[in-house]
């Protein structure tokens, strides 16, 4: 189970902490890697910059991607992931405050596997995180999981 990491891309420290809290509340004990903007997320995933030399065979089980990010937006990250054969098939769950139709549509167009709105109410938020964690970490069979 060790290798089943979660990559959380989130610039807001409140949301970062709440997400981690929610994951803890859900009893999901996987390693959570947090990056704080789009560039860092790509560096991590492609083993560049501060993450140069990282073993790229150890890719996260799921990426929780916020859309509104400094430097490079979540949609740009998604586009680049889907353009690279190494990351083409990584499960990406867009986890964001926005309920704008446009954001939802663009995310799916660029190849997001799921779109989850972060509710304001904490219990609902915990509930949502718990469900997606269960699904993507335990239920879902993906090509890389078996690697």
């Amino acid at each position: 189970m060790e290798q089943k990491k979660i990559l959380l891309v989130e610039d807001n420290p409140d949301d970062e902490e709440l997400t981690i809290l929610a994951l803890q509340e859900s009893k999901l004990l996987n390693e959570i890697v947090v990056v704080h903007d789009g560039v860092e997320a790509l560096d991590y995933l492609f083993g560049r910059g501060p993450y140069a030399g990282r073993d790229l065979s150890m890719q996260p089980q799921v990426i929780l991607l916020d859309l509104k990010l400094p430097r490079l937006s979540g949609l740009d990250v998604l586009r680049q992931l889907r353009a690279d054969h190494r990351t083409r098939l990584l499960p990406v769950v867009v986890l964001t405050s926005s309920s704008e139709e446009e954001d939802i549509v663009r995310s799916y167009e660029l190849g997001a596997n799921s779109y989850v709105r972060k509710p304001v109410e904490f219990h609902q938020f915990v509930d949502a995180v718990q469900r997606l964690g269960l699904y993507w970490l335990l239920m879902n069979q993906c090509p890389l999981c078996d690697g």
């Binding site: 807001n12 409140d14 926005s98």
Partner: peptide, 14 residues
């Protein structure tokens, strides 16, 4: 849509 709700979530969450 993006920014105003985050603080509320923090207020409620914490």
């Amino acid at each position: 849509s993006h920014d105003l709700r985050a603080p509320l979530r923090a207020m409620d969450g914490f």
